[in-house]
Write a protein that binds this DNA or RNA. Structure first.
Length: 596
RNA sequence: GGCCCGGUAGCUCAAUGGAUAGAGCAACAGCCUUCUAAGCUGUAGGUUCUUGGUUCGAUCCCAAGCCGGGUCACCA
C-alpha cells in the first residue's frame, strides 16, 4: 500500500469533514518531507486556504489533528508555514519491509496472458565499421529499457535492424578488392568488424585523393565528387548488387560475415542481446513495394523522372523522397518495409525505436507515412530519442580520428578494474578466471552506470581520462556495497545465525527508519522508470539507497549488535537492501559481485 | 533562415510548481585493533544564461532575447 495515496485520500476526507468541501484526492499535493524537518510526508496546505478561510498555520494544525485522530498510519504532525509534516508510524514502514522480504521480485509487476507486447528496436548498426561510444549508449539504453518494460509487466521482443546493404558496405568492399591482397580476420587475427572498418577508412582516403587530383585538373569540387573513379566503381557495384551479381553478393556475404562475428563479440561483452534480427537486405524490397502501392492509391506522387515523393506540407513538414529516379530505395523506404514485416511476425501493441535524437524528424516522417499507408501503428510508434555522447572537445568525428571505439573502451576499463582490484587485494582465494570475471563485472558496471545514470534525453559528455572512476557516484561503489552485504550474510551463515523470514521489531533508529522508507519506494520507482522510459530513474534511486545503507553500516554494527532481536532485524534489512540493489541493477543490465 | 533539443557549483550530473537548489569528482580537514576504507564524516564552492510575465510560491510553466547542439539530402 502506497502511503502517498492513503494520505491524499485521508486529507480529502479531513477537508470534507472540517470545512464541508469536496476535494479530489488526486489534487492533494503530497511529497517527501525534507530531511531538515521532522516527518515523513508533507502535505501542501496552501491550496486549501480558500476553503478553510483560515491562515496556513491554523489550517495545517486542524488537518493535522484530524489525521492523527483518525488515521492509524499518522502518529504525529507539525506545521511549518504552509507545510503540514506528518510522522508515519514505525509499524507502517516495518509492514512495508515485510512485504518486500519474501518477494524475490519485489517491485516488479509480473507478466500475464493479458500483458501487452512491446517491441524494442535498438542497436541497428551499419556493417562497415566497428561499434563506438555512441552505439554503446544506444545498446545500453535499449537493453535496459527492455528490462524496465518487462519489470512493468510487458512482454518484450528485442529487435535489431542491421543496415547491411548500401553505399557504406560497398566502400569497404571496393577498398578491400583494391588493397586487401586477400587478407581475412583468420589470416591476420584482427576482429572482423575492425578489419572491414579499416578498409572503409582506406576508401575514404582514396576518394579524397582522387577528388584532389580531379580538382587540380580543373574540375569543380562537385564534379570531382561525382566523377572520381572509385565512386563510379561504387555505383557500378551497387547496381550489380541489386542485380544479384554472384561475385559481388559473395564478397558482400563474406565481409558482412566478418562484421557480424565482430559485433557478436562486442554484444556479448556488453551483455546485450536480441530476440529477433532483421536485415535491411531482406526488408528494403518490401518497403519499395509498399511505396509503389502508395503511388497506385494516390497517396504518393511519382515525378516524370521516376522518383517518388510524399508531400507532407499539410502536416507541417516538407516533401520527402521515397524512391530515387533509378527506382532504388532510400533510408526511410527500408523502415517502411521493416515495420510491415515486424507486424506480420508479431502481435505488436507498442513499437519503440531506440534511435538518437538527430533522427527526430525522420521518425515524425515515418509515423506519418505509415499512417498514410493505412497502418494503425503508424501514429502509435514511439521514438525513444536519446542525446549524443560528446567528448570534452565536442562531438566525435571519424574524420579527425576522435571516435572512441567500443572494444578499446571496454578493454581499457577492464585494465583499470584489474589494477585497482589488485592494489586492494581483496580477492585472495579466487582463481584467475574468477578474478577476471570480477574485473569484467566491475568494469562494465562502471561504464554502464556512468551512461545510464544520465537522463537519456540529454546530451552527455564522456571524458576518457576522467570518466573511468570507481569511487563516489559510480557503478563499482554500488557493487561494492552489495559485496559488503553479501560478506555479512556469508558470515552469518558461517556462524549459524539464521536470517529471519520476518522483521519483528517496533523501535527504529533514524538510519533504520530512513532505510525502510527508501526500500518502500522501489516499486514506485520501477513504475516511474517504465512510464518515463528512463533507466536513469532506477540508477539514481539505487544510489540513494546505497548511500543511506553505507551511512547506516558505518554507524551501527549488524553482526556484533548485542541485542539479538535488533541484530536479526538489521540482518534482514541488509539482505533486503542487497536484493533491491541486485534487482535494480538488473534493470540496468549490470551484474553484482559476491566479493570485490 | 524554419523547426527541434539543451543551458544548474571549476568538472560530470540530480532536483512530480514548494521550505535554506542537492550528489559525486577535483581541493582542504578528519576516521581503519571493530561486519570489506572501491567506505564514512566535515569545510569550501551557486545571480539555476538574461529580461519580463503567470502564481501564495518558478531551476521547472509562458514570451522575448543570448549561447551551444541537432535537423531540414535522389546519405544512412
Amino acid at each position: 500500500m502506497n502511503i502517498e495515496l492513503i494520505i491524499k485520500d485521508q486529507v480529502a476526507v479531513a477537508i470534507n469533514s472540517l470545512y464541508g468541501q469536496q476535494v479530489d484526492p488526486a489534487q492533494v499535493q503530497v511529497q517527501l518531507t525534507r530531511s531538515e524537518f521532522e516527518g515523513d510526508q508533507t502535505v501542501m496546505v496552501f491550496p486549501f486556504l480558500r476553503t478553510s478561510k483560515k491562515s496556513p498555520e491554523v489550517t495545517g494544525q486542524e488537518i493535522g489533528e484530524y489525521l492523527v485522530a483518525n488515521v492509524t498510519e499518522v502518529s504525529k504532525f507539525n506545521v511549518v508555514k504552509g507545510f503540514l509534516n506528518l510522522v508515519i508510524d514505525n509499524t507502517f514502514w516495518i509492514d512495508r519491509l515485510n512485504e518486500a522480504i519474501p518477494d524475490d521480485r519485489f517491485g516488479f509487476i509480473p507478466e500475464t496472458d493479458q500483458s501487452e507486447l512491446v517491441m524494442i528496436e535498438y542497436s541497428s548498426p551499419n556493417t562497415n565499421k566497428p561499434l563506438h561510444l555512441g552505439h554503446i549508449r544506444n545498446n545500453l539504453l535499449g537493453f535496459s529499457l527492455a528490462e524496465v518494460m518487462k519489470a512493468n509487466g510487458y512482454k518484450v521482443v528485442k529487435t535489431n535492424i542491421v543496415n547491411d546493404r548500401g553505399v557504406h558496405i560497398c566502400k569497404s568492399m571496393v577498398a578491400w578488392l583494391k588493397f586487401g591482397n586477400g587478407e581475412t580476420p583468420e589470416t591476420n587475427g584482427k576482429k572482423g568488424d575492425h578489419l572491414v572498418g579499416e578498409y572503409y577508412v582506406k576508401f575514404d582516403q582514396l576518394y579524397k585523393s582522387e577528388i584532389a587530383e580531379l580538382m587540380a585538373d580543373g574540375r569543380t569540387e562537385e564534379q570531382a565528387k561525382e566523377e572520381a573513379p572509385c565512386i563510379v566503381e561504387i555505383r557500378e557495384m551497387l547496381i550489380k548488387w541489386e542485380a544479384n551479381d554472384p561475385e559481388v553478393r559473395q564478397l558482400w556475404r563474406t565481409m558482412n560475415g566478418w562484421v557480424y562475428a565482430g559485433f557478436d563479440e562486442t554484444y556479448k561483452t556488453l551483455g546485450v542481446d536480441f530476440d529477433k534480427i532483421y536485415y535491411e537486405s531482406d526488408t528494403y524490397t518490401i518497403g519499395r513495394d509498399e511505396v509503389l502501392r502508395g503511388v497506385k492509391e494516390g497517396i504518393f506522387q511519382q515525378e516524370s523522372d521516376g522518383s517518388v515523393w510524399a508531400n507532407l506540407e499539410k502536416e507541417g513538414l516538407d516533401k520527402k523522397i521515397l524512391l530515387r529516379s533509378d527506382g532504388t530505395s532510400v533510408y526511410i523506404t527500408q523502415d517502411i518495409g521493416t515495420a510491415q514485416l515486424r507486424y506480420r511476425d508479431y502481435p505488436i501493441d507498442h513499437m519503440i525505436y531506440v534511435v538518437g535524437n538527430e533522427q527526430i524528424y525522420h521518425f515524425q516522417v515515418l509515423s506519418l507515412l505509415l499512417d498514410k499507408l493505412g497502418y494503425k501503428w503508424g501514429s502509435d510508434l514511439y521514438h525513444f530519442s536519446y542525446g549524443m555522447v560528446e567528448l570534452p572537445n565536442g562531438r566525435m568525428k571519424s574524420r579527425e580520428g576522435t571516435v572512441v571505439d567500443a572494444d578499446d573502451l571496454v578493454a581499457g576499463m577492464i585494465d583499470v578494474a584489474r589494477s585497482v582490484s589488485m592494489e586492494l587485494g581483496k580477492l585472495e582465494g579466487y582463481s584467475e578466471a574468477e578474478k577476471e570475471h570480477i574485473y569484467h563485472i566491475v568494469a562494465l558496471g562502471a561504464l554502464k552506470y556512468f551512461i545510464l545514470k544520465v537522463d537519456p534525453k540529454k546530451t552527455m559528455t564522456f571524458n576518457p581520462e576522467e570518466s573511468i572512476d570507481f569511487n563516489g557516484n559510480t557503478g563499482p561503489f554500488i557493487q561494492y556495497t552489495y559485496a559488503r552485504i553479501q560478506s555479512i550474510l556469508r558470515k552469518a551463515k558461517e556462524t549459524a545465525i539464521a536470517i529471519p523470514l520476518k522483521a519483528e521489531t517496533t523501535s527504529l533508529n533514524d538510519k533504520e527508519r530512513s532505510l525502510l522508507k527508501i526500500i518502500s519506494l522501489f516499486p514506485e520507482v520501477v513504475k516511474e522508470a517504465g512510464k518515463g522510459h528512463s533507466p536513469a530513474v532506477v540508477a539514481n534511486y539505487v544510489y540513494d539507497l546505497v548511500k543511506e545503507f553505507n551511512s547506516f553500516y558505518h554507524d551501527y554494527s549488524i553482526l556484533n549488535e548485542p541485542d539479538l532481536s535488533i541484530r536479526d532485524f538489521r540482518l534482514v534489512v541488509a539482505q533486503t537492501v542487497g536484493k533491491i540493489i541486485k534487482n535494480g541493477f538488473s534493470l540496468l543490465g549490470i551484474e553484482v559481485p559476491e566479493r570485490m
